[in-house]
Simulated scan of single mutants.
Amino acid sequence: MTQGRVSLQDVATEASVTSSVVSRVLNGDSTVRVRPETRARILRAAEKLNYRPHPGARALASAQTRTVTLLIPDLTNPVYARIARGAMKVASREGYAVLISEDTATEALPYRQLADPGRTDGLLIASYRPGHPLLDRAVIGPLPHVFVNRLHPGSGRNVTVDFEAAGREALLRLAEAGHRHVAHIAGPAELPNSALQARAFAQAGVQAGVSVELIPTSLSEEGGAVATRALVEAESTVTAIYVGNYFQALGVLDALERAQWKVPDRVSVISFDDDRTASFLRPPLSTIAMAHDEQGEQAMVALLHQIRGGASQDVLVPTPPRFIDRGSVGPPRSAESK
Rank of each mutant, 00 (worst) to 15 (best):
S279D: 14
H132M: 09
V269P: 06
I125R: 03
R173A: 14
I42F: 03
D103E: 03
G296H: 01
E233F: 00
Y246F: 07
V263N: 01
A57C: 01
Q295F: 06
D273T: 02
L219M: 14
V232F: 01
T228V: 07
P264W: 05
A234K: 10
D275F: 02
N77I: 04
E164F: 08
S337P: 05
F201S: 00
L172K: 15
P78H: 03
A311V: 12
V267Y: 04
R24G: 03
A61N: 11
A189H: 09
R322M: 08
S155W: 02
K262H: 13
P110T: 07
P283I: 05
R41H: 12
N77A: 03
A138N: 12
Q197N: 07
G4N: 05
L109Y: 10
I100P: 04
S218V: 06
V315H: 06
V17I: 14
A230V: 09
Q313C: 13
T31R: 15
L134C: 07
D162L: 05
R66C: 09
R93E: 14
R199M: 12
I125L: 14
L171D: 02
P117T: 00
Y51H: 00
G205E: 00
A255Y: 01
L250K: 09
T2Y: 10
L135E: 15
K89E: 14
A249S: 11
L151H: 10
V34N: 08
P192C: 10
A87P: 05
G330P: 05
A57K: 00
Q207S: 14
P284R: 06
I288A: 04
T228I: 06
E164N: 12
K338C: 12
H152D: 11
L316F: 11
G327I: 13
A115E: 04
R333L: 14
L174K: 10
F201M: 10
G244D: 01
R308D: 13
L231G: 05
A138H: 06
R199C: 10
L135K: 03
N27P: 04
R157W: 02
A91Y: 00
A291Y: 03
S268Y: 02
E233R: 15
E213M: 09
S62V: 02
G118S: 13
H179P: 12
R33K: 15
E221D: 11
P130A: 10
D136E: 15
L134P: 06
F280G: 12
T38Y: 07
L109I: 13
L303H: 03
R333K: 14
V98C: 07
V32W: 06
P216L: 03
